[in-house]
Amino acid sequence: MLTSGIILLAGSLLSPNPGLIFWTAVTFVIVLLILKKIAWGPILGALEEREKGIQSSIDRAHQAKDESEAILRKNRELLEKADAESDRIIREGKDYAEKLRADFTDKAQADAKKMIASAKDEIEQEKRRALDVLRNEVADLAVKGAEKIIKTALDADMQKKIVDSMIQDLSSKRN
């Protein structure tokens, strides 16, 4: 039963055969030469060309990326500048508007105050005038009344004192 193993190890498995070595060598060399001509040349050439193409594409892509990044950065800077500018303009406008508003308000208030003051003055004057007119009217009336009283009574002086005191009373009550 060990014979199988013995055949395997010591048998003709390892026996040299120069003819086969010869044929292997010849076949292999011919195959190598033909394949080198018909296959490896074109395939390796194509692979190398593609590799270079891919490399150049990658390079170009990187370049484009760098460029676009630079443009983006520039754009961003411009945008920031524009933002700042617009901010500034808005702020200035706001300030100006604020100032303007404040001015207007002050002026309006001042005007209003002035108007009120003049109106008050006028009212005062009118009042005073009216009081004077009233006083004269009342005095006239009183005089007329007094005349009637005097005509009827005796003492005109006495009556006038009474009338004056009455007028004083009236004016103090009025004020």
Binding site: L14, P16, N17, L20, I21, T24, F28
Partner: peptide
């Protein structure tokens, strides 16, 4: 063929 020691010998001689 590669199970023959002569063939593999020839190839490794290359």
């Amino acid at each position: 063929a590669t199970g023959n020691v002569n063939v593999t010998l020839a190839l490794s001689i290359f």
